[in-house]
Design a protein around this nucleic acid. Structure first.
Lengths: 254, 254
DNA sequence: GCTATCGGATAGTGGAACTATCTAGGATGG
DNA sequence: CCATCCTAGATAGTTCCACTATCCGATAGC
């Protein structure tokens, strides 16, 4: 098919497809003449994946490019792709806000000058980060998780926990860790199960990426649903008030 | 304190603080004279919350404004705030990527127009969406979750599942649902437990918001860790290869 | 031959999140 | 009282990102 049909089939505009090709997300079509190219179902599939990663997964175009490059490189071991995937997420939502606007002030380190603490090794942490790191390390040790503590997932976790502490919810993590860890193990087992049937690398690796990136959204949504249910049961304020009605006054808890 | 000290304490630049005040995220300081204002610890707390929501939670400034407005409005019932929170996330990552970039294809994912058809399934859906909706409805029924199917969390879930189907992973959801649902219930129970001790509305509502928005990141990170562990155990490829051992290239995003 | 479409290149758009500058005026130490 | 900072508020500018728009000459299919 030519680009017009690819566009029609996927709902992505022609200029946008060209843009993705330029950015390296989508391989160019096979040229049948100097100014005529042919796209196949693989392109269509890839394009849908791109849209899903951007639209649902919330990745930036650059992050998608990295992830797809990892998928496409057969020399990259599967676990490296998973690590990459983690990084894409971290870059997007957590640690570095790599995606958008300047990162001038906050995160880079202590260039702001007021931190003053340049000598202390081990991360140059503030108080909350150090405490969070200790909690995460304790968790990993307790569970016997065989992970490298330098993993960016661990780093993301430390940052999230530290942020909570900074906001006055330093007790959140310790209050929920065990349940969360049980849940995480449950989920991870299902995830592994899902991809374990796949034998060829491409299929496996894509399953990991899709399952991880889109799976996060699935989990978040299901968590909301389960929260709503648990809350409804506890306060018995009806079947569920949906999103935004002016129902009864603030539910008195307990 | 004055704005300079607020800036120093939080690491947020003075112009940015002013920007947040303009955008309604942070209440203005108490004026002690026409050009002198005083900020207190509540401002500091709020500012830290804003940074956490934007930096870790990945919310847009506009979404943070909405969430904080909901927190601050005592007439808004707690469940409405939770719904709002869900919406912020959907707007950000799932539904329409409303945060940045385009989204020409229909701003509010939530059917701005008259969706006359409610109650019965199937709107103007494509094949994948219809199938996903059926799966989600079956899940809710099976679990006996007392939730309104129009809830935006349900909608997010449908969209994520549909996107997976479109990408060739239509079997993902059915293969993992039960484990995920168990995990979600586990998590939701811990979440409810966490806020159940709180009696005053402000503290409760803030706990819900922080726990939900930042909690998602905690869960995602822990899932990565558990996946890495499960994978290491299954393939026994050493303790854990970390993120970027030589060949992986993309290790550090950014 | 005719016209809609194509590939490729370059430039432009609009939104988001800051960031810089300017104007008056106040705070503070000497 | 004065010099030197800091401040509030307003307006304009910057940077990044994800697209869009417009050209151009060439080509497909009738």
């Amino acid at each position: 098919m030519r680009i017009g049909e690819l566009s029609r089939r996927t709902g992505v505009s022609v200029p946008t497809i060209k843009f993705y090709v330029r950015e390296g997300l989508l391989p160019p079509g096979r040229l049948t003449s100097p100014n005529q190219a042919h796209y196949d179902e693989e392109h269509e599939r890839r394009l849908r994946l791109i849209r899903a990663l951007i639209g649902i997964g919330g990745l930036s175009v650059a992050a998608v490019a990295d992830v797809l490059a990892a998928i496409d490189d057969p020399s990259r071991p599967v676990h490296a792709v998973l690590g990459m995937t983690t990084g894409s997420i971290a870059g997007h939502g957590a640690g570095g806000s790599a995606g958008r606007g300047g990162d001038r002030s906050g995160k880079g380190g202590e260039e702001a000058g007021e931190d003053g603490e340049d000598g202390s090794e081990g991360g140059g942490d503030d108080e909350e980060t150090a405490a969070a790191r200790a909690e995460v390390e304790a968790l990993v040790a307790r569970r016997g998780w065989r992970v490298n503590p330098r993993r960016s997932a661990a780093q993301s976790l430390v940052e999230a926990v530290a942020a909570m502490a900074r906001v006055g919810h330093g007790d959140f993590f310790e209050r929920v860790v065990e349940a969360y860890a049980d849940a995480a193990e449950l989920i991870a087992r299902a995830d592994l199960e899902y991809v374990s049937g796949r034998t060829d690398r491409d299929s496996l690796v894509e399953g990991v990426v899709v399952g991880t990136l889109l799976g996060d959204k699935v989990i978040a949504a299901m968590r909301r649903l389960a929260q709503a249910d648990a809350s409804a049961r506890r306060f018995d304020d009806g079947p569920d008030p949906a999103d935004g009605p002016a129902g009864t006054g603030g539910g008195a808890p307990e």
